Amino acid sequence: MSREALDHIVVVLWETQNYVNIAGTIRAMKNFGLSRLRLVSPADWDPWRIEGIAHDTGDLIAATRLFDSLPAALADCSFVVGLTARERRAKRAVDRPRTLAPEILTRAEAAVLGESGPVALLFGREDHGLPNEALDFCHRTVTIPTNPEHASLNLAQAVLLIAYELWMAAGGERQTFRDPRHVAPPATVEELEMLFADAESALWSVDFFKSRQTETVMRTLRELVRRTDPDGREASFLRAMAIEVVKFTRRQTERAQTPPDDASAQG
């Protein structure tokens, strides 16, 4: 699926009551590549405050369109998906976000080619959701599975979950992780053996073996280290720690064995 299709998906918020939820919606859209927001009769529209909450979203806020009616907001759309948490008596085509996401993107790709209008994701007001009159405009109804004892989601949270599923279906699951700042080849046998030797010296320096068998302890340590599969840089780091333990204990021993000078003794 092409991410270009995301540009042909519009998020429609119907009678949103609080600009904080509009800000949360815009932030979620920006996170997951959606850029077209339509507001139908919002109770509170304050672009300045919204951008103060949803930082770095001025482009989405500037492009937001306001409508006086739901039919006007959906007029050019060829496919409408309504989000609801309530079960309805009327028989409707109900789906889950993850299973419907590929179809939404396929229809949005048709819009990219000019073969259809955009896809609309329709969300209701915070207190009552979408009424049946609004769902009558929808080709599909989506319900996000939640705890039945507390099923209702915050508006912006619902937008974020849908946007996430669309992003993943559009290729987000193939995003690679950022490479670590420092990359080193796997530790060699020689590097690990030097680590184990210095680790044993460090353990001797702190009397760790006084009540334990050296061979058993070192075998366990070897297994622990090998299980983590350290690279050469990590093995060197662990070895440096062991060396410093030996140096520290040596300095402490030498200090304890050095007699105080005459001035110190007289003082």
Rank of each mutant, 00 (worst) to 15 (best):
A110D: 14
V112H: 02
E115P: 08
E115N: 14
E115F: 10
E115R: 14
S116V: 13
P118C: 06
P118D: 01
P118I: 04
P118T: 03
P118M: 07
V119P: 11
V119K: 08
A120D: 07
A120Q: 04
L121Q: 02
F123N: 08
F123G: 06
F123I: 04
G124Q: 01
G124D: 08
R125L: 02
E126W: 03
E126G: 03
D127Y: 04
G129A: 02
G129N: 01
G129F: 07
P131D: 00
V142K: 07
V142N: 02
T143H: 11
T143F: 06
I144P: 11
I144C: 07
T146R: 08
N147D: 15
N147C: 05
P148D: 02
E149W: 08
E149D: 13
H150G: 12
S152C: 12
L153Q: 10
L153V: 13
N154V: 10
L155T: 10
A156G: 12
A156Y: 01
Q157F: 06
V159T: 04
V159F: 03
L160W: 03
L161C: 02
E165D: 10
L166F: 04
L166W: 05
M168T: 10
A169E: 06
A169P: 11
A169K: 06
A170W: 06
G171F: 10
G172P: 08
G172A: 04
R174Q: 14
F177H: 15
R178S: 12
D179M: 15
P180K: 05
P180Q: 05
P180S: 00
R181H: 13
V183G: 07
A184D: 04
P185K: 14
P186K: 11
V189A: 14
E190C: 10
E193C: 06
M194L: 15
M194T: 12
M194F: 14
L195M: 05
F196W: 11
F196H: 04
F196Q: 00
F196C: 00
A197M: 08
D198V: 09
A199F: 03
A199D: 01
A199T: 05
E200F: 01
S201T: 11
A202F: 00
L203T: 00
V206M: 06
F208K: 03
F208R: 00
F209T: 01
K210A: 08
Q213E: 14
Q213A: 15
T214M: 02
T216S: 13
M218F: 00
R219L: 09
L221G: 01
L221A: 00
R222F: 03
E223G: 14
E223H: 04
E223Y: 12
T228M: 15
T228C: 09
T228K: 13
D229M: 15
D229K: 14
P230E: 04
G232N: 05
E234Q: 09
E234R: 13
A235C: 13
A235N: 01
L238R: 01
A240Y: 09
A240E: 00
A240L: 02
A240I: 11
M241I: 15
A242I: 03
A242G: 08
I243C: 05
E244C: 09
V245E: 04
V245I: 14
V245D: 01
K247W: 11
F248S: 12
T249H: 12
R250E: 07
R251L: 11
T253H: 12
R255Y: 11
A256N: 08
A256T: 12
Q257H: 09
